[in-house]
């Protein structure tokens, strides 16, 4: 077994011919990678074929949230890249090799191809993300306000919680009944902090203060306000009822 230090300290020196051969091979690899991306882009502009490819990833179901994020995926380019990777490996290693110029090195071609394509994907991802923000907000990410981004991603809970924080002082204890599932309840209560929200899903909306759960919460947790939160209501998303008997 060789010593580890010997392995990492070894040096490689290339002769001029080897260097030229290496550069030539890498350039051929990178040109192949570019052609791959271009070819994939041309082929996958067909929506049916694109949908078929996307359908191969079953957990990318077509809900709005996921569809938004599919904008970040230059998947089409890379799938074609993978196919051409196999083709170029075939060209490099099998009998078709004789059709390539003799000075090229198959291994270096493959390395150049892979590195170029990998870099292409990384750069495409970054460009896509930036372009996504520009398309949605008409601004670059560095020009966006925190409020704008949060309101876009959490369109109900964020503005409602902001309004809620302005209505009540910090530390107020409220019994929260939220509609629309646990998702809204947890988002709203987390964004409402430092207002303290307590579970009150079974409290009656019409007459909350005579409810058993309210009585329990008000005596043990000193809750003074009941809030009914319906994120999808366009008229009254937040209904606050203050108990005056305490």
């Amino acid at each position: 077994m060789p010593e580890f230090t010997k392995v990492i300290h070894e040096r490689i020196e290339f002769s001029d011919d080897e260097e030229k051969q290496f550069i030539g091979s890498v350039v051929v690899g990178s040109v192949l990678a570019s052609l791959t991306c271009l070819g994939a882009w041309v082929i996958l502009r067909n929506p049916e074929f694109r949908a078929w490819i996307t359908g191969l990833v079953p957990h990318r179901y077509p809900i709005a949230f996921a569809a938004e994020r599919q904008l970040l995926a230059p998947r089409s380019i890379a799938i074609a890249g993978a196919i051409l990777l196999i083709c170029s490996a075939g060209v490099a290693f099998w009998k078709w090799r004789r059709f390539l110029p003799s000075k090229l090195n198959a291994k270096h071609c493959a390395v150049g191809y892979f590195t170029a394509l990998q870099t292409g994907i990384a750069v495409a991802v970054v460009l896509n993300i930036s372009f996504y923000f520009y398309r949605v907000f008409h601004r670059l990410p560095c020009q966006l306000r925190e409020d704008t981004v949060l309101t876009h991603w959490v369109p109900q809970a964020y503005p409602h919680a902001k309004m809620f924080r302005e209505l009540l002082p910090a530390g107020t204890r409220v019994a929260l009944r939220a509609e629309g599932g646990t998702f809204n309840r947890y988002l709203f209560s987390a964004l409402s902090y430092p207002i303290a929200c307590y579970y009150a899903d079974s409290i009656s909306i019409t007459d909350p203060f005579h409810d058993k759960q309210w009585l329990s919460l008000s005596s043990s947790r000193h809750v003074s306000v009941f809030v009914h939160y319906d994120p999808f209501s366009t008229t009254e998303p937040l209904v606050l009822k203050r108990c005056l008997q305490q």
Binding site: V57, P58, L72, I77, A78, G81, A82, I121, A122, N128
Partner: peptide, 14 residues
């Protein structure tokens, strides 16, 4: 498997 093979926007061709 599709996560590993068909998600280049996350893993590239790694």
């Amino acid at each position: 498997v599709s996560e590993i093979i068909l998600r280049p926007e996350l893993y590239g061709l790694s």
